[in-house]
Design a protein around this nucleic acid. Structure first.
Lengths: 263, 263
DNA sequence: CGTCTTTGTCCAATATAATGTACATATGAT
DNA sequence: ATCATATGTACATTATATTGGACAAAGACG
């Protein structure tokens, strides 16, 4: 499934990799599945999947859900995820930033990150527009399809970027292929400018704005984005960018392990 | 680590179990650790831990954090946890219920679940009291120490319960041992009553109220709790219980007929 | 009634993952 | 300098985890 992992030769897969492949698959499907279905759809031996599923069930990583022996992601994952969220503590400030952005611009505001070699929307505020413009939260989207994508890979070299992004992800939703050289050029420009904007590739009526949120490694750990109707986006371009930059500046470069003890 | 799994004989541990042991350990420690430290503290071979950590890093399950090669839970776990939360979608209603409870009673309100064979507070609203009564969110607490614990294991047989709860968890914070027979009797009473209340075992000045939130399997999937000063709790006992039951009824699964929370 | 598909369990074979050990480097104490 | 500790890497060994395939029960369908 992942372009990173298995190739051609029918090698044995490591249990851990298979396990996380199962978890990712369930997340992508967003529904409980029978072990059999999982095995068939990810192309793994049934016996292996059954064994792994049982193991994960015992650990609380998976849970029975939906009856008929179907399984889905388990409570333990929720706890682990909550611990992550708590540790890096971007959530609260993130929500505040999105609220402020949505309030200030009336457009859809998003907080986005990389999930492996895909782009994903982590949090979102719907704008006050009469029509909804939204990618679903948690869905994996090819990096080249998004404005944020340019910023999220900007710390890599050209070679690293091309090795990182699956080649098929340069195929746009309309079937056309995005030239990788053009993409790389846009990455470099975005990095130099500190933002990236374009008419959305995914639809034909929105303009997207993205600015980086700097993490502790000194590069973009996430992005803040606005998705606006095209005319509107072009008309308010400077103001929107200023809003985004202000919000990102407040969010970024948080003190590393900052633990706040509340009184 | 888990009382369930390995004991005695120095057997080889399975990679997956070790991996999740590492994840749980990091969650418990709530800080980034070096692989070396992890290995030493969980009593695992260093070479194994190094291999697993690298594997988990490649999968985004762990991340470098805090420098010096330290690692902590990774973003992928956040995504998986978010998918779980989204699927079972208890969060939004849960927050509303806690808000309502805190508003109605002015006491600390908690939403609690089992994490493996421990009790844990998943969400909480601080009460309006001048002093704080709080278990930290996400901390694992022995089941017998809590009022909720009685309800969360009530669907098991006596034997299952005793096999499920680690024996040392019957040792209370003050060093005394809780008689398991007494605990089982309390479990049965709580199940019959549809609630459990007692003077906290953990401290000496609070009274705890717990009611079950019924899940799709027909037993308590979680609990709603109030933690009140003793005098206050006793004075408002009936009203607090009514509030809790009302909130839990709205939260829980519509009873399918088998088991029923008595009003 | 057969026949096919779906689902789950069981088991032997072997590729390999977990481990112990040795090695390399840095840091700090004496 | 010398010793001790902490940290990370490399590799051979062997216990075992992964896998394919056999087996069986339970529909679905004609």
């Amino acid at each position: 499934m992942d372009a990173i992992s298995d190739e051609a030769g029918a090698k044995r897969a490591r249990g851990l990799d298979r396990a996380f492949e199962i978890l990712d698959f369930l997340r992508q499907k967003r529904q409980a599945l029978k072990p059999n279905e999982i095995a068939a759809q990810i192309g793994a031996p049934r016996s292996s999947v059954y064994e792994l599923v049982n193991l994960l069930l015992r650990n609380g990583i998976l849970e029975f859900s939906g009856g008929e022996g179907r399984v889905y992601l388990g409570r333990k994952l929720y706890f682990l995820g909550a611990a992550y969220e708590n540790h890096f503590d971007f959530t609260r400030e993130c929500e505040a930033a999105l609220d402020w952005l949505a309030d200030e611009t009336r457009e859809t505001a998003q907080f986005c990150m990389l999930d492996g070699n895909k782009y994903t929307v982590v949090r979102m505020r719907e704008g006050a527009r009469p029509f909804r413009i939204s990618t679903d939260i948690g869905q994996s989207v090819p990096i080249p399809w998004t404005a944020s994508g340019r910023l999220l890979v900007a710390h890599m070299s050209d070679e690293e970027i091309l090795a990182f992004i699956p080649p098929q992800d340069f195929r746009l939703p309309d079937g056309k292929w995005l030239d990788s050289a053009q993409f790389l050029a846009e990455v470099r420009r975005a990095d130099a400018d500190g933002f990236f904007t374009f008419n959305s590739i995914v639809d034909s009526f929105t303009h997207c704005f993205a600015v980086p949120v700097m993490g502790e490694e000194g590069h973009a750990a996430a992005t803040l984005c606005l998705v606006a109707p095209r005319a509107d986006g072009l008309a308010n371009r400077e103001r929107y960018l200023d809003c985004l930059k202000a919000a990102a500046a407040r969010l970024g470069q948080a003190p590393t392990g900052a633990k706040r003890v509340l009184a």
